[in-house]
Computed example of a mutant assay.
Amino acid sequence: MSLEKENKINSLMQGWPQNAVYLTSWLVENGYSHQLLNRYKKSNWITSLNNGAFIKSGGTATIEGAVYALQSQGKVSIHPSGKSALNLLGKAHYLEFSRQQYILFGNKNERIPSWMKNHNWGMEINYYPTSFLPSDLGLTEIEMNGFSIKISGAARAIMECLYLGPKRQDLKESFELMEGLNNLRPKQVQQLLEACTSVKVKRLFLYMAHKCGHPWLEFVEVENINLGKGKRQIVADGLYNPEYKITIPKNLVDE
């Protein structure tokens, strides 16, 4: 191997976090041809993930490492969301949290690439493309052993839980998660609620925050939030709450 080629592979390996995924398209764009990547693969420097991405040989591809590739190299807004984000933030520790499923949200025009769909992550990946919130609002950045990714902050994450309810996320569990969010920032809550396009999410969020008695709710200007008109039946055979004009599960009312 020539000195130039040796420096090239050394530079790549030294800057590659152990569990991070690198997109094939990004590597090619940055001077690593398909021929060169095949050579690295045969030399056991890198391992292919379904013909669209690579992992550093000896490492283990993690779902967060895949998200790192999507965000930093693919330039998409796909991010850990809902319960998965709350777990990463340490906000779901009092619930029995299982990594049997992992929740991702992204813009409605973004898709999970095939290499990510086809890889066995040891859990079910549930991706929801939606634009009920702006893609850049309410996110936070966390460090993951050599790389960082953007995930939903606590306020956005609980709204994502409510967006999935009641069919894909139990509302009683969402309420239990809300109970632990006693230190949300009112300014960020205000921004998210004003930008949110889902009346269901906004009404459920305010109902649960009020029921929890969170002090930060006093500083949220509800009159500036568009809560829509008329009644909303969130569940069938529920109980009607006249303040927020929603029909909610009986077990939530009795909580």
Score class of each variant (00 low, 15 high):
Lys42Ser: 15
Lys42Asn: 14
Lys42Trp: 10
Lys42Asp: 14
Asn44Tyr: 13
Trp45Gly: 01
Ile46Val: 15
Ile46Arg: 04
Thr47Tyr: 09
Thr47Met: 10
Thr47Gly: 07
Thr47Pro: 03
Thr47Ile: 04
Ser48Ala: 10
Ser48Leu: 07
Ser48Ile: 05
Ser48Trp: 00
Leu49Glu: 00
Leu49Trp: 08
Asn50Trp: 09
Asn50Lys: 11
Asn50Ala: 05
Asn50His: 09
Asn50Tyr: 10
Asn50Glu: 04
Asn51Met: 06
Asn51Gln: 09
Asn51Val: 03
Asn51Pro: 01
Asn51Ser: 10
Gly52Lys: 01
Gly52Ala: 03
Gly52Tyr: 05
Ala53Pro: 04
Ala53Cys: 07
Ala53Phe: 07
Phe54Tyr: 15
Phe54Leu: 06
Ile55Gly: 07
Ile55Lys: 02
Ile55Cys: 05
Ile55Arg: 00
Ile55Ser: 06
Ile55Tyr: 00
Lys56Asn: 01
Lys56Gln: 10
Lys56Asp: 00
Lys56Ser: 04
Ser57Gln: 12
Ser57Val: 02
Ser57Lys: 12
Ser57Asn: 12
Gly58Glu: 07
Gly58Arg: 02
Gly58Gln: 02
Gly58Asn: 05
Gly59Trp: 12
Thr60Gly: 08
Thr60Tyr: 13
Thr60Leu: 14
Thr60Asn: 15
Thr60Cys: 08
Thr60Met: 12
Ala61Lys: 13
Ala61Val: 14
Ala61Leu: 11
Ala61Gln: 08
Thr62Met: 15
Ile63Ala: 14
Glu64Arg: 11
Glu64Tyr: 13
Glu64Thr: 15
Gly65Ser: 13
Gly65Met: 09
Gly65Val: 07
Gly65Arg: 10
Gly65Trp: 14
Ala66Ser: 13
Ala66Lys: 01
Val67Lys: 08
Val67Ser: 09
Val67Thr: 12
Tyr68Lys: 03
Tyr68Cys: 12
Ala69Met: 07
Ala69Tyr: 05
Ala69Thr: 03
Leu70Gln: 00
Leu70Asn: 03
Gln71Asp: 00
Gln71Ile: 04
Gln71Phe: 10
